[in-house]
């Protein structure tokens, strides 16, 4: 028996690529939600009102220190009992997005803390509404330094998508396992999935590094 059957690998490539579209959809959609929700969480955590900032801080800490797998189980198996039916795909995207929203919230917090104090005082002195202040003054300054860190979480998120195969989302890992159990050949599909992730995450990392260089060169 060959070590690595190339014709078999070629044969299963289309199946894997089709499943990889699911992986990419989950990553991009989840990341979009995470970036938006993370910003809200970060601003909520900074709020002056204790009734808002404490629960948000608690939620962030709790989600950050429990495993994604259990959270996704929770969304997928507990919520239907209360009438909220999510498909595996929806539960997966929602779960991974919430999980990473809490991570990005911390990144945003670092960015917001890095905005000079004078800027916050100036905003107050000019009597700006909170919405205008955040949109026009604070966020443009806070976002630039944290873009690379956000990019890192995009890579991390991509690599966490296989976890969703546990709730029957057919992404690339699940597809590879299906192929394996049909043909009793695990070497090719799982190796190819590994390569897929390696190439994609190296590519994304390269992109993030370029972004970093670009942002440093940009005039202040």
């Amino acid at each position: 028996m060959n070590l690595f059957d190339w014709s078999f690998a070629w044969h299963i490539l289309p199946d894997l690529l089709r499943a990889s579209l699911n992986t990419l959809t989950i990553t991009l959609l989840g990341f979009a939600i995470a970036v938006a929700a993370g910003l809200l969480l970060a601003i909520g955590r900074r709020s002056r009102h204790l009734w808002l900032s404490w629960p948000v801080a608690g939620l962030i800490e709790f989600i950050r220190s429990t495993p994604l797998l259990i959270q996704v189980y929770f969304l997928f198996y507990v919520f239907p009992n209360y009438g909220l039916n999510l498909t595996a795909m929806q539960a997966g995207i929602l779960g991974i997005a919430l999980h990473y929203a809490c991570y990005t919230a911390e990144v945003y917090r670092a960015g917001l803390d890095a905005v000079p104090r004078g800027q916050w005082e100036a905003v107050t002195a000019l009597n700006m509404a909170p919405l205008t202040a955040y949109r026009d003054i604070i966020l443009p300054q806070a976002l630039r330094p944290i873009l690379p860190a956000l990019g890192n979480y995009l890579v991390a998120m991509l690599k966490d998508t296989p976890v969703l195969s546990a709730i029957t989302v057919v992404e690339i890992m699940q597809q590879a396992k299906n192929i394996g159990s049909e043909s009793f050949r695990y070497l090719e599909p799982i190796t190819m999935v590994g390569l897929f992730f390696l190439i994609l995450s190296l590519g994304l990392a390269w992109f993030v590094r370029r972004l970093e260089g670009r942002l440093e060169l940009a005039p202040r």
Binding site: K159, D160, T161, P162, V163, S165, M173, A176, K177, Y186, I190, T191, V193, G194, F197, L198, S201, L202, A205
Partner: peptide, 11 residues
């Protein structure tokens, strides 16, 4: 670092 942990475990 470049591949997913689950993929490594399955491998």
């Amino acid at each position: 670092r470049g591949t997913s942990l689950l993929v490594q475990l399955f491998w």
